[in-house]
């Protein structure tokens, strides 16, 4: 039971990290109609930015700020130089050009930081554990990550449902021409949205830094899971991104933790250890396939 609760928290933590990634990706697709494979690169840039600044200054807080700034700057530059030329192209062009961007960013990072992974330490303040459930100490850093994730999720919903820019974002997601007709500077709106998405991806990368190693190619793994998230949630929908992210986070964590054990009861330990591990590693893809059979446009299809 305690193990279950612990894994539940791990699942939530993964889910919120995925949400930070998915929010930007799904907004960019919903509003600009762009598939951006380089979104994973922004995550990587955030992680490296955090690692570099933390190493230089010794402060993780400054590291986070460094991550936000570096990812946002990279995102805005990317939008201005390359991506805005792709908005009206077909998806195939977008996939290929942003694939080229990934190659570029990965190689550039390798040149700047070398091929070895960097390690970020958990900040001292959060380097303990909290007994939120009696008898089960849980790392406070992970708890903090969940907190930040929730905070961002709430502020994002407030931003989108309450503010003027949020109204424009919502309008843009459902009707691009209309926003132009309102006399809004579309190009600026797009750049802002992209910068916001980039910042969230960078934040996600920075927060994950102390939990995983910071290395070239880290963006791609999470990118593809993020795709699964937004396909499940319904492309273009923030609500879908949140639900999809939590679902994927929980299923993946729970699958890895409990599938092999559960299967051992049915299949016997030897067969279960290999089948269970395999099944756990593909659980989220199976989840996606099932959801798509049921609802081909995802759980919350945007209009």
């Amino acid at each position: 039971m305690l193990l279950f609760l612990e894994q539940l928290l791990n699942g939530l933590q993964l889910g919120f990290m995925l949400f930070l990634m998915a929010a930007g990706l799904t907004l960019v697709f919903g509003i600009m109609g762009l598939i951006n494979l380089a979104h994973g690169s922004l995550y990587m840039i955030g992680a490296y930015g955090a690692a570099a600044v933390t190493q230089a200054t010794g402060s993780f807080t400054l590291g986070i700020i460094g991550a936000l700034i570096s990812a946002a700057v990279a995102g805005v530059l990317l939008e201005l130089i390359v991506l805005r030329r792709l908005y009206n192209r077909d998806h195939l062009d977008q996939v290929l050009a942003t694939f080229g961007l990934i190659l570029f960013f990965n190689e550039l990072t390798k040149i700047l930081f070398g091929p070895q992974p960097l390690y970020l330490n958990v900040p001292d303040l959060l380097n303990g554990s909290v007994e939120i459930i009696p008898g089960a100490p849980y790392p406070s850093y992970r708890l903090a990550v969940i907190g930040v994730g929730m905070l961002v999720a709430v502020s994002l919903f407030l931003l989108i449902s309450r503010s003027r820019i949020g109204m424009l974002i919502r309008a843009g997601a459902s009707n691009r021409e209309m926003v132009g007709a309102l006399g809004v500077n579309i190009a600026l709106l797009y750049t802002l949205v992209f910068g916001l998405g980039a910042m969230l991806a960078g934040l996600s990368g920075a927060l994950v830094g102390p939990l995983l190693s910071v290395e070239v190619g880290m963006g791609e793994n999470v990118l593809i899971i993020t795709f699964v998230v937004i396909v499940i949630g319904g492309i273009g929908s923030i609500k879908g991104a949140l639900v999809g992210a939590l679902l994927v986070g929980l299923v993946d964590t729970m699958g890895r933790a409990f599938l092999p054990g559960t299967l051992a009861l049915i299949l016997g330990p030897e067969a279960a250890s290999s089948v269970g591990a395999s099944l756990a590693s593909i659980a989220i893809y199976l989840l996606m396939a099932l959801i798509l059979i049921w609802r081909p446009a995802g759980l919350f299809p945007a209009q």
Binding site: I35, F227, S274, A280, I282, P296
Partner: peptide
């Protein structure tokens, strides 16, 4: 069953599923 961007992402995800399956196939 899907079109456009969904199709792109789903074919990608299925391939990825197979990739992880073979990684865990000791």
């Amino acid at each position: 069953r899907t079109r456009g961007i969904h199709f792109i992402m789903i074919t990608l995800a299925f391939a990825q599923m197979l990739y992880y399956l073979f990684i865990s196939l000791y």
